[in-house]
Design a protein around this nucleic acid. Structure first.
Lengths: 185, 185
DNA sequence: CAGATATGTCAATATGACTGACATAAACTT
DNA sequence: AAGTTTATGTCAGTCATATTGACATATCTG
C-alpha cells in the first residue's frame, strides 16, 4: 500500500514533530487540541453539508436559517452581528431563503423599518433535520461521559469564546454560565 | 441602546426557542453544543486570521503550512487527503508558500515522483506564531480544569471525528487514543 | 423638517473551492 | 522494451461566498 511504516512514528517521514516552544516564556503549543478541533469541526459541519447540497444550499444558508429558527424575530442587523458578514453577503443568501419560503419577514412592532425574521414550517423542518444529524454525532461523542465530564466539555467551549464584544445572540448563550442548567432546556 | 429586554428571555423577541424534538424517536437537539461549537470555532480561527492577513495569506495557507510543519515529509497526496480539497485548489496556495520560501520540496527517496514537503525556518516561525495564539486561548479555556476534565475535552473532540476512512495524518492523531499520553508529547 | 437609522440593491472584486482536460516524469507490469 | 499506472503540475472555466463602495427607500427621532 505504502512504504511508510506508521508504527515507527519516531523515525517515519510522517511522524508528528515533537519540539519545545520556540521562545522562552511561550506556552507549549497544544497541537493535540488544535488539530482535534480542526478535524472535529470539519466532520461536524460535514454532516450538514451533504443534506444542504440536495437542497441547493450551502453553509451560509444553514447558518442563517439556524439562527433565525433558534431566535425567532431576529433582526437583520442582529444576524449580521452573529455571522460577522456584510449585509451584501447576507442579502443573496437571505433572499433565496425568503423566495423559497424557508423564512418570512415581519415588520417590527415598535419600529416598522425593522424586518424581523421567522422560520416557516418548511424552514424549521430543514433545521431540525440538520440539527438531528449533528446531535447524533454529539451524543455519540458524549456517550458514557459522566455528568461532570459532559459539563466540562460545555465549559471548555464557552471558555473558547471571546467575551469582549458579545453580540446579542451570544449574550443569551453565555448567560447560561451563571444561570441554572434548566434555563437552557 | 436597544428596545429589547434581554433579561426577560421568556418573552423577548430574541429568546431562544425551546421546543420538543420534532419526530418521535429523534433525540432532543443539543442546541447548546451546536451553537457553542460554532462560536468557539469562529473565535478560534479568528485568532490566526488577523495575523495571516498581515502576511497576505488566508486560512488555506495556514492549514497547509500547519500540517507540513507538523508532519515533515508529508506528500502532496497526503495533504490532499487531510484537507479534503482538489490538487488544483491546493496548487495555487502551495505555489505561493513555495515561492515565498515558507515550504520546500524534496524528491522522495524511494519514489522520486513524490514531492515531500518541509517547512523552512520562516515557515516554522509563522506556524509557531499562529499556534501560540491558539494555544493561549485553549489554555485560558482549560484554566482550572481538573486533569480528568481536560482529558474529557480531548476525548469528546476525538469522539466527534469520523472513524470510517481516516487518512494517514488522522490515523496518527487518533492512535493516541489507546497509547499513553506522553506519546503525544 | 432635518438628520440618523434599518434595510435593500447595484457593481466590481477577491478568495478558495470545484470539474475537466492534458502534460510530464517515474514507477510498475507484462 | 513497451505499455500502463501513479504522483504531480498546470491551464481554463465556473461557482459560492465573501469583500468595499455607492446609492435608494422607508421610517424613526430630535
Amino acid at each position: 500500500m505504502t512504504d511508510i511504516n506508521f508504527k515507527d512514528r519516531s523515525s517515519g517521514p510522517l511522524a508528528a514533530a515533537a519540539e519545545p516552544p520556540a521562545e522562552p516564556g511561550a506556552a507549549t503549543p497544544r497541537w493535540d487540541i488544535i488539530e482535534l478541533l480542526f478535524f472535529a469541526y470539519r466532520d461536524f459541519v460535514g454532516d450538514a453539508d451533504h443534506v444542504l447540497e440536495a437542497f441547493g444550499f450551502g453553509r451560509a444558508h444553514h447558518r442563517v436559517i439556524h439562527f433565525v429558527h433558534r431566535y425567532p424575530g431576529l433582526k437583520v442587523a442582529d444576524l449580521l452581528d452573529v455571522l460577522r458578514i456584510t449585509k451584501q453577503s447576507l442579502g443573496r443568501v437571505l433572499k433565496q431563503l425568503l423566495d423559497e419560503a424557508y423564512i418570512v419577514q415581519k415588520a417590527g412592532d415598535s419600529d416598522r423599518r425593522q424586518r424581523l425574521l421567522f422560520a416557516t414550517a418548511k424552514g424549521e423542518a430543514l433545521v431540525a433535520k440538520l440539527a438531528g444529524l449533528q446531535t447524533d454525532r454529539i451524543n455519540r461523542a458524549l456517550a458514557g461521559f459522566a455528568p461532570g465530564e459532559a459539563e466540562a466539555v460545555g465549559r471548555f467551549l464557552r471558555g473558547m469564546i471571546d467575551r469582549d464584544d458579545p453580540d446579542k445572540v451570544l449574550e443569551i448563550i453565555l448567560q447560561a454560565d451563571g444561570a441554572s442548567a434548566k434555563d437552557r432546556r
